[in-house]
Structures are given as structure tokens and as C-alpha cells.
């Protein structure tokens, strides 16, 4: 079973966000970058499936030099090999362009299953997975919390509003990971040492035969980043709990009119 896991390197979720000079992107100086948390579930699941059924897990990431560290982390967790689509600007490109780059790199290797997180935290788009599935003309199941591999078929549990859909798809297929899929392992010391010897194939965009669209012709791009709107001062009650409770219920009904 050949498994490809796509990972995105993102600012650590605790990062304080500052805006860069052009106001369209964040200031990355001093930011700690990590593997996007949902992608970690995908990496873990890929390794578990290989451990159960054999085969190889390849991790693919796109971005500048620093993405190499994220790929090393995945290798240390137990992934077999990595492909780094190395480009300084690709992280700022639109999702479809990123999906095209991933599709081109993945088409060159054998795959039965593609895994990735349901979205990369930060840009929070959640688009690359389904776009990649379309470009590769394979079925997709998004935001899955359970995966069972059968004979050339995968069954996945996907959480929807108020229910769980159990979806069956023939392989090859693309699945995106939801929290609850598994508990990702930490790289062991042995894994970290072994990762140093595992191959990372570095591919630039010209090698893949693709180019980024000019910023003005991207189908979508960030025009401006702003601080979130303030919520204004709240009314805080510190007195007797019973009286506070009664007063807040009254305000919810008479002032906010929400109950």
C-alpha cells in the first residue's frame, strides 16, 4: 500500500500574529513553525496503515527552505521518504495553485491513498484536499475520524451536523483528517536519528513544469490583513451569584433579546 501524506508547515497555534510590511501577509520573523495539527493526524494514520499492511509512506510539503524541518519531523515519526516542493512564494499562492503543484509531484509516484489534514491552521482554507482529489480524478472523503482499509476500498467515518456519515470509496482515494482520528506519536530519539538518513527529494517548480500565477491573476488572494474587530466592553458582575444570575438572564431577555 503506497500512501502519500501532504503536510503544511504553519505558525505554531500559540503565535501572536503581527502583520508584514505589505499588510497582506504576516510578519514571519520570530515565528515558530510546526506541522499543521490536522496534518499530524494524517501522518500518524499513514504510518499506522503501513505498519498494519506494509508499503511505503511518502510525505509531500510545499514552501520555502524551512519546510524541510517539517518534513524531517514527519520522517522522524516514521515516514519513509519526503518530497519538498521548494519555492519561496508558493505558500502565498491560492489553494488551486498549491493543489496543482502537489498533483504534479504526486502523479510521478505510485499511490493508493492520499491523506492530509482537513485544513492547514492559519490560512484556514480547507481547499487543497478536495482540489487535489479533483485534479487527480479520485474520490474524496473530508474530515474523517475513522478509517478502515479493505480490499481496494476504504471506509471512512465523517462527522456532519448531528450525525456521522459512513462513506465507502474505491482506492485510490483522498481523505482529510479530523481530530479524533488518532493520537499522533512523538518522534523517538531513534526515529530522529534514522530521519537524518532518509531521503528528501527537493523539487523546484520549474522541475515540475509549473509556474505561479502573477499575483494579480491569482483566482483569489489576500488584499489586506486586519486585527479582528473589538467586542467592546462587557458588563461584568462580581456580586452575589444569585443576583448576578438573575440580572444576566434579565439582560439576555430585555437588552440583548436573545432568549
Amino acid at each position: 500500500m503506497n500512501i502519500v501524506v501532504c503536510v503544511k508547515q504553519v505558525p505554531d497555534t500559540e503565535t501572536r500574529i503581527r502583520f508584514g510590511p505589505d499588510g497582506r501577509w504576516i510578519d514571519e520573523s520570530g515565528v515558530t513553525f510546526v506541522v499543521s495539527p490536522y496534518d499530524e493526524f494524517a501522518v500518524e494514520e499513514g504510518i499506522r496503515i503501513r505498519e498494519a499492511r506494509g508499503g511505503e509512506v511518502t510525505v509531500v510539503g510545499a514552501g520555502p527552505e524551512r519546510v524541510g524541518q517539517a518534513l524531517r519531523t514527519c520522517l522522524a515519526m516514521g515516514v519513509d521518504r519526503a518530497i519538498h516542493i521548494k519555492d519561496d512564494a508558493i505558500e502565498r499562492a491560492d489553494s488551486l495553485t498549491i493543489a496543482r503543484a502537489l498533483a504534479t509531484a504526486i502523479k510521478a509516484i505510485p499511490f493508493d491513498l492520499i491523506l492530509m489534514g482537513k485544513y492547514g491552521v492559519g490560512t484556514d482554507n480547507g481547499q487543497v484536499g478536495p482540489m487535489l482529489a479533483l485534479l487527480l480524478d479520485i474520490p474524496q472523503v473530508c474530515a474523517v475520524a475513522k478509517i478502515e482499509i479493505g480490499e481496494r476500498v476504504v471506509t471512512a467515518h465523517r462527522e456532519i451536523e448531528g450525525a456521522i456519515e459512513i462513506v465507502e470509496a474505491p482506492l485510490p482515494a483522498l481523505l482529510t483528517a479530523e481530530k479524533g482520528l488518532n493520537e499522533p506519536r512523538y518522534p523517538s530519539l531513534k526515529g530522529i536519528m534514522a530521519a537524518k538518513k532518509k531521503p528528501i527529494d527537493v523539487r523546484d517548480l520549474s522541475f515540475l513544469g509549473i509556474s505561479l500565477p502573477a499575483p494579480g491573476s491569482q483566482p483569489i488572494r489576500w488584499q489586506k490583513l486586519e486585527a479582528p474587530p473589538g467586542r467592546g466592553e462587557g458588563k461584568i458582575f462580581r456580586g452575589d451569584p444569585g443576583e448576578s444570575a438573575r440580572e444576566v438572564v434579565r439582560l439576555l431577555r430585555e437588552e440583548a433579546k436573545v432568549i
Binding site: G122, D124, P219, I220, Q223, P228
Partner: peptide, 18 residues
């Protein structure tokens, strides 16, 4: 909202379908 609501992005489109 982006960065889990720590910032808001205004996005613009080009092309025939948004």
C-alpha cells in the same frame, strides 16, 4: 477570519467565477 480569528483577511478575486 484567519489564524483562528487572530486576524481578518479581506480577499479579492480575479477571473470569471468567484
Amino acid at each position: 477570519p484567519v489564524y483562528s480569528g487572530k486576524a481578518y483577511a479581506t480577499v479579492e478575486f480575479s477571473g470569471s467565477l468567484a
